[in-house]
């Protein structure tokens, strides 16, 4: 993961070495790497937005057997285009089974049957805890309202592991959350066990700049990989706490033409196999 020799055909990769413009966007880099992070997982509880794009891309590229599970009650959805909502009809029409919302949360999620939960977030802290509820805008202004918890607290609690995907900025990666909606690693090692959370919690946070992973000793997020063309300082600068950097930071593989074609086809509503 630390060179550019496997770069895509078509010239995109050759631009990486000299830093010239390349033919993918930061969001595409993020989504492609988020999709790759699903390798080895069989079942994925999918949040809407970036996680859904990544999970669908994984199913269209390296993980054709990935079982996509949506909180609207679908097991094994196989959409051909990216759904706008978690309740688009295609998710149900292409599913192996459609169940009620109480069933999806109680029998499938809470029972610990699902390998990986894939979440987005508005605010993340150094222990990969998540705020999607309210933003403190200072003493003279009312709290800024975010959508709220949705499925996230129990997805992060009960899936065997958790992946997160969000854009990297000081606004999103904060020293202290204004509100803890969803627990990642709490306040450090041992907290998940103390709280009785079943799964191992967040194992990677994939952003448009690189990948952060929790330190096995401290549970604090550490920068382990940067994307091609991104500098370590840039990631440190975009993080609201003093970000720890791994001794040897890797560079992620550039997106392949196949990955980019599949992602663009999903986004444009077409079938990449067509």
């Amino acid at each position: 993961m630390n060179d550019t020799t496997n770069a895509a055909p078509g010239g995109a990769g050759s631009d990486v070495a000299n830093g010239a413009a390349r033919d993918w966007t930061p969001d595409e880099l993020m989504t492609v790497n988020a999709a790759r992070a699903l390798q080895g997982s069989r079942t994925c509880f999918v949040g809407i937005g970036l996680p859904s794009a990544a999970a669908n891309l994984a199913r269209r590229t390296s993980q054709p057997d990935l079982v996509l599970i949506y909180e609207s009650g679908t097991l094994g959805s196989k959409p051909t285009r990216l759904p706008l909502s978690i309740g688009d009809g295609e998710l149900a029409d292409t599913a192996d089974a459609v169940v009620s919302v109480p069933e999806i949360f109680n029998y499938w999620l809470q029972a610990g049957r699902i390998d990986v939960g894939f979440l987005g977030a508005a605010q993340v802290d150094r222990y990969a805890n998540i705020n999607t509820t309210v933003i403190d805008r200072g003493p003279d202004r009312p709290e800024g309202r975010l959508p709220g918890a949705g499925g996230a607290p129990e997805i992060a609690a009960s899936c065997r592991k958790v992946l997160m995907v969000l854009r990297h900025s000081r606004r999103n990666f904060v020293e202290k959350l204004d509100f803890v909606t969803t627990v990642g690693h709490g306040s450090g090692p041992g907290d998940r066990a103390r709280l009785g959370l079943l799964g191992q919690g967040p194992v990677a946070v994939i952003t448009d700049l690189g990948v952060l992973r929790p330190d096995p000793e401290t549970a604090e997020l550490v920068l382990t990989e940067i994307h091609p063309g991104v500098a370590v300082d840039q990631v440190v600068e975009a993080t609201g706490w003093k970000l720890r950097v791994a001794d040897a930071v890797g560079v992620t593989e550039p997106p392949t033409q196949a990955e980019l074609a599949a992602l663009r086809a999903l986004k444009s509503g077409g079938d990449p196999r067509a």
């Binding site: 809470q110 509820t133 918890a149 909606t181 969803t182 959370l197």
Partner: peptide
Amino acid sequence: VLRGYRGSDL
């Protein structure tokens, strides 16, 4: 009853 809200401020 459910296993839920653990560690959350909700």
